[in-house]
Amino acid sequence: MQELTNKYNSQLEEKTIVEKLQFLVEQHPDKVVFTTSFGYEDQVITDIIFKNDLPIKVVTLDTGRLFPETSKVYRSTLEKYNKPIKAYFPPTEEVEKLLDEKGPFSFYESLENRKECCFIRKVIPLKRALKGNEIWITGLRASQSDNRSDMKFFEYDAGNDIVKFNPLMEWSLEETIDWVKKYNVPYNVLHDKGFVSIGCQPCTRAIQPGEDFRAGRWWWEQGSGKECGLHSVKK
């Protein structure tokens, strides 16, 4: 997988996003998946996939703690493109056990508890969504976080044994928003209220002018890296 990652970074460097995606579905038929959380970046990729009728599975992780506004974007996206977006949920028994033992807001109490909640609600369903696939498309941009500053278009995700493709890696937030506006792509209205990175409702707030892109996620933590575990394993 690592050799394939290096090969694709070199071989596909000059191709457009659509050309890269077309190449991937040809090389990995029925084994390319895109995970969306309906933010600006993910909506751009969804627009590209659906408008070009690319045979790529589009899936989302429903943690059970999402903003109503996020669910509305989900619905609007289904209505606009008339294409399927499959939802994956966390395991019921694990969620029940967590709440029985630690209550509904244990993630505020410690970093360990927060990561435990993220693992149950996000990482476990993600692994189900990625199972059997060879290429994982994401909406990550390098400028979103210091942790992502050294990312490449193609990366090997060792934790999931899959090649990750980050087509918007070099895009700015402004370029992303411009695409959404130009092509009338459905977007989360929370973006208009200062929410840049939108996750679970209890763990996300709007950011203030001058604050870091990830400041609105798990704002009560200091020095945690502001990651949930979905994109923390790579080589």
Rank of each mutant, 00 (worst) to 15 (best):
Ile198Leu: 06
Arg205Ile: 12
Pro167Ser: 10
Glu170Arg: 04
Ile56His: 00
Phe67Lys: 13
Leu4Gln: 14
Glu211Ser: 03
Tyr81Arg: 10
Val73Leu: 07
Tyr187Leu: 04
Gln43Ser: 13
Trp220Val: 01
Lys20Asp: 09
Ile135Glu: 07
Ala206Met: 11
Lys182Val: 09
Arg128Ala: 14
Glu174Met: 03
Tyr156Asn: 06
Phe195Lys: 12
Lys131Cys: 00
Glu174Arg: 08
Val189Asp: 13
Ser71His: 15
Thr70Met: 01
Gln144Arg: 01
Ser143Gln: 14
Glu3Leu: 12
Arg128His: 12
Gln144Glu: 15
Gln11Thr: 12
Pro202Val: 05
Ala129Asp: 07
Asp178Tyr: 06
Lys115His: 14
Lys235Glu: 13
Ile135Thr: 06
Glu155Gly: 05
Gly103Glu: 05
Gln2Asn: 11
Thr60Ala: 13
Val32Met: 02
Asn133Ser: 15
Ala129Cys: 10
Val95Trp: 00
Asn113Tyr: 06
Lys20Asn: 15
Glu93Arg: 08
Asn9Cys: 06
His28Trp: 05
Pro55Val: 07
Asn147Lys: 12
His191Gln: 07
Cys117Glu: 03
Ile49Tyr: 00
Ser145Cys: 00
Glu175Lys: 08
Ser106Ala: 15
Val95Asn: 01
Gly64Pro: 04
Asn52Leu: 11
Lys193Ala: 10
Gly159Val: 03
Glu13Cys: 11
Thr35Val: 09
Gly159Arg: 05
Glu96Leu: 14
Val180Met: 05
Thr60Pro: 00
Ser172Ala: 12
Phe34Ile: 03
Gln201Thr: 00
Glu134Cys: 03
His191Glu: 04
Leu126Val: 05
Phe34Gly: 01
Phe67Arg: 13
Leu54Lys: 08
Lys181Gly: 03
Val185Met: 09
Tyr81Gln: 08
His191Thr: 12
